[in-house]
Every structure is written in structure tokens, then in C-alpha cells.
Design a protein around this nucleic acid. Sequence first.
DNA 1: ATGGTTGAGAATCAA
Length: 269
Amino acid sequence: MTLKIATWNINSVRLRIDLVERLTQTAKPDVLCLQETKAENKVFPYDALKAMGWEHILASGMKGYNGVTILSKIPFESTEAPEWCDKSDARHAVATLKGGIEIHNFYIPAGGDIPDPDQNEKFAHKLRFLDEITAWFSKRKAAKASAKNKMVLVGDLNIAPLESDVWSHKQLLKVVSHTPVEVERLDRLQGSHDWVDAVRQFFGPEKILYSWWSYRAKDWNTADKGRRLDHIWVTPALSKDVKAVEILRDVRGWPRPSDHVPVMVTLKS
DNA sequence: ATGGTTGAGAATCAA
């Protein structure tokens, strides 16, 4: 038996509902975590998603921006939509699957253009968000004696930490998403619950990997100026169960695509 | 050097 978990920044679930269906049918994930759904719950396409086989749906949305969703073929034991930085901005959804795996789906703030928290409140928010969830996971780890905890953290973390996660390390060092201050925060988050980067565990540290290509490039595929902003992390109790990881680059070439592509892990269960 | 595109939803704001 296997469990396939995918994450995808869909950039409007309503506009791209047909692409969600295409991914559902071709990649056949058991759990699909979406970010940037851009739909408040009252306009969320529950019926269309149920019709394509997503029986269990956790949606946390707001009008116009952000929004995270966990779609599942496996029933939920419990669900939660925590809030951070005193904002109700729909950036975190948690679902525990029947059987015990706890899934965290994040849309971390992008952080604006200027990588200085004193000049740019959006960048300050991004750092604060990372600090808050790091403290929260550290506390939970201590409280739960977590050695056996089976947890998965996915999402658009809006940080590409390694040199092999960006098209040019040198040219992006001062570009939000790849600055040392963000990478250091992401490393601390990773340490907060002994998270293992399942994608790098599978592919190794050297392989060039991207999950996002800007809409602004004339030809995203030829220019290939990508970044790996979308991540799948697992706790040590699950790291040995990672059988495969795929970054579905072809999806960037689908009609009217998102600027992000799905990342999917196959776990032995 | 600094533009380039997309989405929500109704003028910009965010990415």
C-alpha cells in the first residue's frame, strides 16, 4: 500500500478547477494540498471537487487572496486552521488522517520586494510568520514526545534555500525568497520538529530542482529561470517510508497554467 | 537598466 501526497499552489482554484481535475486523474494523489485558492468558503467549489472524487475537504479561504485547502480520499480524524501574526489570512490548514498522519499545509507570506524588515512590512511579516510557527512546532514537539509522530509539512514556503534551488545563486542572493536571512529562518523551522526535506532526501543536494517559473518570462521553459519554492517535509518517523518524489514540471505547460507546479511524494503505508 | 504577466474583482493590490 502507498499513500501519495501532493502540494500545488493553484493560483485560483475556481479559474483552474479543470487543471485540478486533470491532475487528480493523471497523478492520482490520495491527498492534494492547494495554496492560493483565492476563494472565500462561500464561493469555494466544494461540489466540483466532490464530483471528481475528493470526498473529504478542508478549506480555509478569504476573499481575493491566499487560501489553503486539503483534499483527501482518506477521512479526517480532526482538522484545524490555525492563525498567525494576529491575522485571519488563511495560510495554514491541518488535517489528521484516519490512521494518524498529521498533514500541515502552509502558504507562507511571499514577503514583497525589498528584503529589509525595517523598510518593508511584508518582509517583516514573512520573518515573523516563520518565527511564530517555529516556536509553535518546538513547543508541540516538547509536549508530545514526538519520536513516533508521523507528520508531513507541505506548501508554498516562498523560500528556495539551496544553491541548487535557484537558477542563479549569485543573482538571487538579494532577491526575496533566496536571501540568507530567510534561509536561516527556514533552517530553524526545519529544526523545530526535526523535519526532513523529503525532496532533497530523494534527489540529493546537487540536482537542480525548480517548482516555480515566473509568468513574466517570454518562454519559461527555454529561459528556465526557476526556483524551488514548494516543499514537502516529513518527520523522521516517516522519512524511511519515502518511496518516490516527483516534481511535475510538465504541468507548467498546461493551458492557462499556475506559475507553480505540483510536487508529490509517495509514502509506503 | 528595470520591465515583464497573472488573478481577484472592480481600483488597485499582491505575487
